[in-house]
C-alpha cells in the first residue's frame, strides 16, 4: 500500500487518500498503450521495412520483423541515388534559414520592442497581418517573382523567401518587450551604442526564444517540400523531401525497399534532434501552434 500511495502521491497529496489498484487505472494505461501503438506502428513499419529486401516487403502475408535484414537499400540510396547530395542541400538550406532568422529577426525584434521610430506601428501591423495569411495565397506570385529574378533552380531561390519570417520577428519582439526597460536605459545612459546593447545585453538574455525560433525554422525548412519542389528543377538542387517525393512517383516507385530507406533518411535526423531537444520542441510548437 505504501508504494502505491507513493506512486500516485502527486495527484492525491491534497487530502492524502491511499489508492488501491483500480480498474480505472488499468483502463487508463490500456488506452494510453493502444494510442502509443497506433502512433508508433507506422514508424516501426518504416524502420523495419527499410532493412528488408524488396521481395520481403511486398510478400503476402507480410511480416513485421525482417527475415534477412540487410543494409543494401541504404547503400543503393547513397551510391546510385545521390542522397548524400540531397542531404547536404537540405542541411544547407535549413541551417542558412535558421541563421538568417536568428540574426535578422532578433535585430528587428529589438528595434520593435525597445526603440521609438517613425513607421514602427505600420510596420509591426504589417508583420501581424502577414502572420495570418496562409502560404497558399502567396505561393503563385512568389513563384512568379523568384522566377523573374532568375533565381529558380538556385540555392538563393530556395533560401531567400524563408530567410526571415513574420513569426520570427513576432516571437523575438514579444520576448524582448518583456525585458525590463531599465536594463536597456542603463546601458544607453552609460553611452553604449545600440549595437553593443543588442549584442551584450539583449542577445544573452534571449536564449529561450532564439532556441524556439531555431527549432521552428529548422523543422519547417527540413520538412518543406512544396516550395523546393517547384524551385529545384534539376537534381543538383533537390532537397531530401523533393527527391523522395519525385522518387516515389517515378520509375523507382515500386522499389519499396529503396523508398522506405529514403523515408528513414528524411525522418531520422529530425527525430534525433527532437529526442535530444524534446522539451524545447514541444514548448516551441505549443506556444506558437505552428510547426
Amino acid at each position: 500500500m505504501t508504494t502505491m500511495s507513493a506512486s500516485t502521491g502527486a495527484a492525491t497529496s491534497g487530502i492524502g487518500v491511499l489508492r488501491r489498484i483500480r480498474p480505472a487505472r488499468i483502463m487508463l494505461y490500456g488506452a494510453l498503450v493502444v494510442g502509443l501503438i497506433a502512433t508508433l506502428a507506422p514508424f516501426a513499419w518504416m524502420f523495419l521495412g527499410s532493412v528488408k529486401p524488396t521481395g520481403e516487403i511486398v510478400a503476402y502475408p507480410s511480416s513485421w520483423l525482417p527475415r534477412s535484414p540487410t543494409l543494401d537499400n541504404f547503400e543503393l540510396l547513397l551510391a546510385k541515388q545521390n542522397f548524400g547530395l540531397y542531404f547536404f542541400n537540405s542541411t544547407l538550406v535549413a541551417v542558412t534559414c535558421v541563421m538568417g532568422n536568428l540574426l535578422f529577426c532578433s535585430m528587428a525584434g529589438y528595434a520593435f520592442a525597445k526603440m521609438e521610430f517613425a513607421g514602427k506601428r505600420l510596420l509591426f501591423g504589417l508583420v501581424l497581418t502577414m502572420l495570418i495569411i496562409p502560404g497558399a495565397t502567396t505561393f503563385v506570385p512568389l513563384f512568379v517573382l523568384v522566377s523573374n529574378m532568375g533565381l529558380s533552380n538556385s540555392y538563393l531561390g530556395l533560401i531567400l523567401p524563408f530567410l526571415v519570417t513574420p513569426l520570427g520577428v513576432f516571437l523575438m519582439r514579444q520576448f524582448i518587450h518583456d525585458i525590463p526597460d531599465s536594463l536597456v536605459e542603463a546601458a544607453r545612459l552609460d553611452g553604449a551604442g545600440e549595437t553593443r546593447i543588442f549584442l551584450r545585453v539583449i542577445v544573452p538574455l534571449c536564449r529561450p526564444p532564439l532556441a524556439t525560433l531555431a527549432i521552428l525554422t529548422f523543422l519547417a525548412q527540413w520538412n518543406n517540400f512544396l516550395w523546393p519542389l517547384v524551385i529545384a528543377q534539376t537534381e543538383d538542387h533537390y532537397t531530401l523531401p523533393v527527391a523522395l517525393a519525385l522518387f516515389s512517383v517515378g520509375a523507382n516507385g515500386t522499389n519499396y525497399g529503396l523508398l522506405l530507406a529514403g523515408a528513414v533518411t528524411v525522418v531520422t535526423p529530425i527525430l534525433l534532434l527532437f529526442l535530444f531537444l524534446q522539451r524545447q520542441f514541444v514548448q516551441g510548437i505549443a506556444s506558437t501552434g505552428i510547426k
Binding site: 506512486s7 502512433t39 520538412n223 517540400f225 523522395l244 523515408a263 528524411v266 527532437f274 520542441f281 514541444v282
Partner: peptide
C-alpha cells in the same frame, strides 16, 4: 490523471508524428 510511469515516453511518442516530414509519412 496522476500517472507517473512512462509519462515522458508517452508524450514524446505521441508528439513524434508532428515533427515528421509528410513526404516520408506518405511513403509509409
Amino acid at each position: 490523471s496522476g500517472i507517473q510511469r512512462a509519462k515522458g515516453l508517452f508524450r514524446v511518442a505521441y508528439f513524434a508524428p508532428v515533427v515528421t516530414s509528410i513526404v516520408a509519412i506518405a511513403v509509409v
